[in-house]
């Protein structure tokens, strides 16, 4: 039965239900129990965003493990546990901190299946927060999924809503490869219908959020709702947009995007990541290479600028792509004459 859950509750429920179903699922991270060792404050916190709140009460300290503030240590521990029979889900607060454990992720977890000839599996999930708009400044606001998408051997999930979040996180935990699961901070309080039952959404299957015939908009994570808003505005102007949410950047469902662009002839990609080597650049390049003949206008990219995320609120608001910027790009693509 479906009821409204926020994105935050959807993460918590996916973890809780999968921990009930599979005793090998464990959680690690900073403050994910919270207040450990302080009398009366057990489970006060549930991580910096309160995502894992309540889980230590049901599953105990052996399965919900508060770690020291050492990302390289607990991500390494999670990867090691995954290679020896557990299904760890590590929470690494902000993706911006991932740099201190790149070796564990890029050179260890991502390589085991390949270097051991397919005989090793590494079923680890690293949940992490991303995104600007939280007034958290340059070191806590980036959208770094393109970095991880670049690495063969990692799967990257960028959910845009609570329904997808629960199904994709359940899939991530059951998946035998390392999965980086990106949660946009500004989506946590957005609610939608989510079934009580467990379900999985396959990786590499885009969601066609809105069907249309004039322009294809590809958007990720928080940008999906912005693209929908832009599409509704543009519909009133007689421009019929298709909105595609790839849901995972690796694997990427390029087929759905190509099929759409072959129909519309126009592509706008919206990506909150910095513009160089991001998903917008990647998708635009692949479409240009594989569907050049179908394009009736150059692909357009709506992205954040190539600067750190500003701390000034007014500048931060300008930094993030907006529905208005998306609509402008669509109008330009529509009006383009060779």
């Amino acid at each position: 039965m479906a009821r409204k859950l926020t994105f935050r509750q959807a993460v918590n429920e996916a973890l809780r239900q999968e921990m009930r179903r599979d005793p090998t699922v464990i959680l690690l991270g900073e403050d994910i129990a919270g207040g450990k060792g302080s009398p009366g404050e057990q489970d006060a916190w549930g991580g910096d965003m309160g995502i894992t709140k309540g889980l230590i009460g049901e599953f105990g300290e052996r399965r919900v493990i508060d770690t020291p503030i050492s990302e390289s240590a607990f991500i390494g521990a999670a990867v090691g546990a995954a290679t020896s029979g557990l299904r760890p889900v590590a929470e690494l607060m902000f993706v911006d901190f991932m740099g201190v454990c790149f070796d564990q992720i890029f050179n260890q977890a991502a390589k085991f299946r390949y270097m051991f000839g397919g005989k090793a599996k590494t079923p680890v999930v690293i949940r992490t927060q991303m995104g600007a708009g939280y007034r958290a400044a340059a070191q806590h606001s980036q959208c770094l999924y393109p970095l991880f998408t670049h690495i063969p051997g990692l799967k990257c999930v960028v959910p845009s809503g609570a329904y997808d979040c629960k199904g994709l996180l359940t899939q991530a935990i059951r998946d035998d490869d390392p999965v980086i699961f990106f949660e946009h901070k500004l989506l946590y309080d957005v609610a939608e219908d989510v079934p009580e039952e467990q379900y999985t959404i396959p990786f590499g299957e885009a969601n066609v959020v809105r069907e249309g015939n004039d322009v294809t908009i590809v958007a990720l994570a928080r940008m999906v709702s912005f693209a929908k808003t832009a599409a509704e505005t543009l519909a009133k102007e007689g421009i019929d947009c298709e909105v595609i949410d790839p849901r995972t950047t690796s694997p990427l469902d390029l087929d759905t995007i190509l099929e759409s662009v072959r129909r519309t002839g126009r592509l706008v990609v919206v990506d909150e990541a910095h513009p160089r080597c991001n998903m917008a650049a990647d998708i635009a390049a692949q479409v240009a290479e594989q569907a050049f003949g179908a394009l009736r206008a150059p692909p357009r990219m709506v992205t954040a600028p190539h600067t750190p995320v500003p701390f000034s609120p007014s500048l931060e608001d300008l930094f993030v792509p907006s529905p208005e910027k998306i609509a402008t790009a669509v109008r330009e693509a529509r009006a383009y004459k060779a």
Binding site: G167, P195, Q198, Y199, T200
Partner: peptide, 16 residues
């Protein structure tokens, strides 16, 4: 067969 119809059937089929 609309996209919504397909999505609704998929939602049922994806349940454990």
């Amino acid at each position: 067969v609309t996209g919504d119809m397909i999505n609704n059937v998929l939602k049922s089929k994806r349940l454990d």
